[in-house]
Amino acid sequence: MIRVVVQDAAIDFATETDRHDAGGHGATASFVGRVRGDDGVTQLFLEHHPQMTERGLADLAHAAADRWRLPALTLIHRVGAMAPGETIVLVLASSPHRAEALAACTFLIDRLKTDVMLWKRETLADGAARWVEPRTADQERAEGWD
């Protein structure tokens, strides 16, 4: 089962893991992306497209399911304002064996950084805001899956 969610609400790891793992799969790989608090960042805002962000995540989830055996896949991305330490993104990928689960999890986080309509804006302690620039290393990692 593929589950893709874009939400304003906080992502609760335990709740989502319980929901995801109901089938009792052999291996579940997870990735939790959190807001970094370095560089004096006090708030992160995630801007998204009302339709295309969720569709982009769903396209990626289906691409992963075509590539690996994934009886369960959960992909949740938070949008809106969040504080350092809060979860931005959660990937849960389950497969009969670990190699496929781990590969799918890595694929999904690598590709969603370059393929999905989401933009990060950081607010600093003095109130100044800046849009996060894409990183070349992220682009290279994403292209590595082509």
Partner: peptide, 10 residues
């Protein structure tokens, strides 16, 4: 048509 900067999610 949507026009936007390179994406930075994840």
């Amino acid at each position: 048509v949507a026009l936007f900067p390179p994406v930075t999610g994840g």
